[in-house]
Computed example of a mutant assay.
Amino acid sequence: MPLPMSRRSLAALLPLAFAAPAAAGRHDPEWIGFRQRFMAPEGRVVDTGNGNVSHTEGQGWALLFAVHFDDRASFDRILGWTRRNLQRRGDALFSWRWRPNVAQPVDDPNNATDGDIYIAWALLRGAARWGDPGLRALAVAIGRDLLRLLWRDVAGQGVLLPGLNGFETATQVVVNPSYFVFPAYAALAEAVPDPRWQRLTTDALAVLRVARFGRWGLPPDWLSLPRAGGRPDLPTRWPPRFSFDAVRVPLLLAWGGHATEPAVGAAGAFWAAPTMPAWADLRTDAVAEYPASGGVRAIAALVGNARPVPLPPVRGAADYYAASLGLLVALACADRGLPTVLSPA
């Protein structure tokens, strides 16, 4: 049975966007475990499953976790490292990746829009929790530049480019559906008033209702939108999969109050398989020969209406990404008022 409240107006979501996170503390074992395993002392979040790089996705998520667990000291370290090492010149956005043990750790100045959104959202939540207008000012600058630099109108549908460079041609715009961060839009709209935030929700929902592929009707990791209009398609540049990116789509839909959307139900049906494969090929219907991580299983439990929602312990997570997905589900449950329970290791 799906979660309730699948559709809400932007105004109705505003109290949720600024609600204080559920009771949690900086001494919570799950947060301590995440810091110990995946965060360097200076505030760099380490992607242990991807060459120990750091990226704005991880920095933004860790900032959200620090607010949730009321850990201002860690928040300041994460934010400080992010601004020192990833802040772009000329705008308020961030370069998407930092690589260790190389002469030029930031070798690609391109941003990642989801990372920028998570950072801005965390800054707004931190500003509300700790009464710090300086954090809000940083978030406002990011929100303005997201709209100024990345907004595109594609055949009447508003989207944000996944990054400043490399995602549009004369005939198409490529988007990543896991970058549709539905639960953040109301907070950004309150901080940076602009009707385009509401359009991002409305138009993204419309896109996801038709951009479903393969045997299970799943959303893809990457999606091509024709500038002339018509049905979205799978771009050739990336594998045509419901995979490590797209698993976040049902989480973000449910977190944002859209849990009865078809993409959520499709993911739930796919994950109902006993083995719960890590990915599906949306052209051939082939599936991975290995299972989904504990973090993905937590998303499946959330959208499958398990109550309480079982959360995988950080100490048992295979890597940074699996641990992060589990904590994101914990934050979503806190925001939606859903009970959780820690699963056995």
Rank of each mutant, 00 (worst) to 15 (best):
L10E: 00
L10T: 00
L10R: 00
L16Q: 11
A17F: 02
F18V: 12
P21T: 02
A22W: 10
E30P: 01
I32Q: 11
Q36Y: 11
Q36L: 15
A40V: 07
G43D: 05
D47P: 02
V53N: 02
G58F: 10
W61Y: 15
D71L: 09
A73E: 12
R77E: 15
G80P: 04
R84K: 12
A92F: 00
W98H: 12
P100F: 13
D107H: 14
A112V: 03
T113E: 07
I117F: 02
A120F: 02
L123S: 03
D132I: 01
A137Y: 02
A139T: 02
A139M: 02
A139Y: 02
R144C: 11
R144F: 10
W151F: 09
R152C: 14
L161S: 09
P162Y: 07
L164Y: 14
N165T: 13
E168H: 07
E168A: 14
Q172W: 12
P177T: 04
S178Q: 04
F180I: 04
A186S: 13
L188N: 01
E190K: 06
A191M: 07
V192L: 13
P193S: 12
P193K: 07
D194T: 10
Q198M: 13
R199M: 11
L200W: 09
T201L: 08
D203W: 10
L205I: 08
L205N: 08
R209D: 14
P219Y: 00
L225G: 10
P226A: 08
D233F: 13
P240T: 04
F242K: 00
F242N: 00
F242W: 06
V247P: 00
T260K: 11
E261Y: 05
P262R: 06
G265F: 06
A267W: 09
W271G: 10
A272K: 12
T275R: 08
D281V: 06
V303K: 08
R307L: 15
A318F: 08
D319I: 07
L325V: 03
L328H: 01
S343G: 13
